[in-house]
Amino acid sequence: MSSYVYCVTRASHPLPLEGAVGVGERAPALRLVREQDLVAVVSDAPENLRAKRRDLVKHDAVIGRIYAAGTVLPMRFGMVAPDDEAVQTELRSRARRYGELLCRMDGHVELNVKGVHAEEALLRDLLLQNDELRARNHALRAADGGRHQDKVAFGEHVAAAVAERRARDAGQVIARLQPHAAQIRRGPPVDGCFVNVSFLVASSARADFDGALSPLRRELPGYASVELYGPLPPYSFVGNEADV
């Protein structure tokens, strides 16, 4: 039976797992794979696992329990080992790396910040600020929408102006929050957000980080809003790409 892996932590972790179950319809029991100072939380891997909402919630809930009681290295959703021995072998062969990563994550949380622009308010602001764009918009309207190529050309100019605002506001968000973070990792523009960025923040810097949000929100233009998600297990700071 292959093993679905949730996270890696230290053998000394309290591991509060009573009542928790794993991913898949059969809600498999969780078990521990120990090797030296490390422990992996695993369950039997369900067949035909897909990323269904229910299973994402369970994956995150198992990690959340461990994370609430101590430092954890969360696995990406869907990692399956051939068996528990393979997990043990992995822990043994990378014990040093996992030990270092755990030390780096000690006392830190991930905070994810997403910023969105209210699109119509942004476009309205762009038109009001930019005489040329406003004049071209007016001309297209006067021509009952205008020719296809004129609409495309106008839209391209608008898009460039939008991209400029997105980059500018993203830069502002990062500039104001990065000083309070140990590490930073940018993500894709999920749901069209102009900034999606995760910060690894020490507990001792949380108050400063949170304190930087209100002035940031006041500085940003009115069409921009910024939401903070977290604290989260440090998903963004344990992958291979985050090693640098």
Partner: peptide
């Protein structure tokens, strides 16, 4: 984050 980040 859960789908594209985390330990691999």
């Amino acid at each position: 984050l859960i789908l594209d980040r985390g330990l691999v």
